[in-house]
Simulated scan of single mutants.
Amino acid sequence: MTQGDTVGAALPGLCLDCASDPGAGARCRSCGSPRLVRHAELNELSVAHLDCDAFYAAIEKRDDPSLADRPLIIGGGRRGVVSTACYIARIRGVRSAMPMFQAMKLCPDAVVLPPDMRKYAEVGRQIRAMMLELTPLVEPLSIDEAFMDLSGTQSLHRAPPARTLARLILRLDREVGISASIGLAPNKFLAKMASDLDKPRGFSVVGRAEARSFLAARPVSAIWGVGPSLHNRLLADGLRTIADLQRADRGDLARRYGANGLAPR
């Protein structure tokens, strides 16, 4: 279950706008927010992936409020590519790594700014320092995303990891002026997939109980380490979804793909 779910109100819950226990209703009993997350394993999971929302664009909008309601693209000239785009531009179809000429056809009224990597790196360091205040187990993936393992931190923070993470997101908004999304799961693979489910300002949980079914419908390309070459091999062998791999014989997978075919499923 993810942000905003209200089914199963008896399940452990968290308000994303005040990081408190929301009670059993559809709105938080403390602040009235409908932005709630409920999950049976909410207070048991401790591995998270934090991913800032449209990071470069968010920083530029923070620093120039006149850009708040305008489509914004960070990238090079007409022959360059899109580094990132705000969510207004994304609604129009603009995506990272898209050629700029194509992005401008989709969103001709967009404001285009060159990336300011020095500024972005400074904000990235600020966010990283906040993460390290919560746990030493921070594994950066890029300037604006990282894994965090909050195992064993409940006594220190007097809260389960989910609530500690919600407080961190509120702090990022208040002190840094940007938003981020969280994926919470039993392992890094699931946490990274979860963080992308409900962007922006998402907080998605994938527990152990539903991990197999959650993965089943996803394409094999979603698996870490499956690049274009292996992806084409899998497709040629009729393996299009993770469910296809789950049903396949492990011995056959090992013969075809070596050690990769023996990876846990």
Rank of each mutant, 00 (worst) to 15 (best):
S179G: 15
L168E: 09
S229C: 07
R208F: 09
G207I: 06
S195Y: 05
F203G: 09
F189R: 04
A217D: 12
L197M: 15
S229Y: 06
E175W: 10
T164G: 07
S204L: 01
R174Q: 15
I182G: 02
I178K: 08
T164K: 13
G227N: 00
L172M: 13
D173K: 15
G183H: 08
F189A: 09
W224M: 10
F203R: 14
S229G: 11
A217S: 13
K192C: 12
D198E: 09
I223Y: 08
S179R: 14
I169E: 13
V220L: 02
G177M: 14
L172R: 06
P219I: 04
A216L: 09
K192I: 04
L165A: 06
A222D: 07
V206L: 10
V226Y: 06
S213L: 02
L184W: 05
V205R: 08
A166R: 05
V226H: 10
S204M: 03
A222V: 10
L190V: 00
L197C: 13
E175V: 13
G183K: 05
K199I: 07
S229A: 15
L172Q: 02
A185G: 05
A216D: 11
N187G: 11
L168T: 08
S195W: 06
G177W: 13
W224A: 15
E210D: 09
A209D: 14
G177I: 08
L170Q: 15
F203Q: 12
P219S: 04
A216F: 11
L215T: 05
A180Y: 10
G177P: 12
R201L: 15
S179A: 13
P228K: 00
A222G: 02
S179F: 12
L215G: 05
E175T: 08
N187I: 12
N187P: 09
A185P: 03
A194W: 08
S221R: 14
D196N: 12
A194P: 06
S221V: 06
T164Y: 10
R212L: 05
A209K: 14
V205C: 05
V206K: 12
V206Q: 13
L197I: 14
R167N: 14
G177Y: 12
M193R: 05
P200T: 10
E210G: 02
A180T: 01
M193F: 11
G202F: 09
L184F: 07
I182W: 05
A216Y: 11
I182D: 02
S204T: 09
A216P: 01
D173N: 15
G225Q: 13
L197S: 11
L172G: 04
